[in-house]
Design a binder for these strands. Structure first.
Lengths: 208, 208
DNA sequence: CTTAATATTAGTATCAGGTGCTAAATGTAA
DNA sequence: TTACATTTAGCACCTGATACTAATATTAAG
């Protein structure tokens, strides 16, 4: 789920729910509230006004519903999305290196560090998903190439050990060969002394 | 960079800068503004009030500085962080299949579709980054395995054609061999009739 | 010292998107 | 008809701003 309802604290004391008799309209209300929760989870950027138009009820009703459901106001929702994803984006964003660039010698070699966390791992086992390790390796490989844009042509990779969330991964990349616009890069990722990933990338630089 | 200054549009016409004579205090101002930009880039969640306290100037001065630097207000900054990352997280989130699961025959084969967008691509060229294509392939490969958790052991992959943002990718995965807890999975990703990715994964199922 | 320009601070009106409260209107089932 | 749930309305207030005007330093140069 993108927008965790569970993270909304301070659900207010809603005395209304005590009511023994639930008149007919209760169904409409319940359905609307269910649908409302759904809609906001899918798109937390909706204002009460937009929601009231969508459901054909007044703004006040939407506010009551949010109160009963413990859904915070728009700004808090946006903030929670921003805060919740701020760290993740740092490590997976296509814009930059996945992980932190520790050292780089353009055209030769580079080094990066990735601090893994729960968001990158399987929930049950805390084992970090391969795609994040791959992304660290790929982005470092691209970074060491001294060219504007580089694409992966071929990759040969091997995961040697599972990585648990919370562990710090250090990646080393080295350009071992170059033929015209083709770069051959080796990337090794270590967890302390142990190698957990090894990959050979062939990258193609595009010049425009 | 986490928080793109470049994405802040509508830099206002600041006539002040025309001034020929720049008195002494100009240095303090410039330094403060540089530092201000830095601070906001590092932490976009700071209000004008907090910033004014930090720099020991009035809120108005902070506002003037923001105006001159083209930095939007707090709420817009938070929103931009949230919006900018919302799509990315959805498509790369470890929780689910990257792309949409179209068909699955557990233990045999599966099919998924990924609609690429700008957030997955290089800005200059619109070419989709390999890690997203890889993530689609990997997650589908894991999905077809009829086991709780599977890890990638080895992967042999090849990107055959660049993919532009906006294009729809259809991935087919097929288990071709199984030896105990090791699964051999082929994944092919096509863009219409053309194959853009081909990979062989060896997955290891973990049972606890 | 005076002047002109810059830099800073102050104050007011206004806005969006709410909260929190009270009160009234509108169902609806018994 | 009544009791209760549900919905709507209205108002004061809040935060973090914008937009604007005006006053007050600060400072370099004549």
């Amino acid at each position: 789920m993108l927008y965790k309802a569970a993270s909304w604290k301070k659900v207010p004391d809603v005395e209304r729910e005590r009511g023994v008799i639930l008149p007919g309209k209760g169904k409409e209300k319940k359905e609307r509230q269910k649908s409302l929760m759904d809609k906001i989870v899918k798109d937390p950027f909706l204002t009460d006004e937009e929601l009231s138009e969508h459901f054909g009820v007044s703004i006040q009703t939407i506010r009551l519903d949010r109160l009963e459901l413990g859904i915070p106001e728009l700004r808090e929702r946006i903030k929670s999305v921003a805060e919740g994803t701020y760290a993740k984006v740092r490590s997976i964003s296509g814009k930059e290196i996945v992980g932190e660039l520790l050292d780089i010698d353009l055209g030769k070699k580079g080094m990066s560090m990735l601090e893994t966390d729960d968001s990158m791992a399987f929930e049950k086992t805390n084992i970090v998903r391969g795609q994040f390790i791959y992304a660290q390796a790929e982005s470092l490989a691209i970074a060491v190439i001294d060219a504007d844009v580089a694409l992966i042509g071929v990759a040969n990779i091997k995961y040697k050990q599972p990585v648990r969330s919370g562990q710090k991964l250090v990646a080393h990349a080295e350009i071992i060969k170059r033929r015209e616009n083709k770069f051959f890069v080796w990337v090794r990722i270590k967890l302390r002394m142990q190698e957990v990933f090894r990959g050979k990338f062939i990258l193609v630089a595009l010049d425009e």
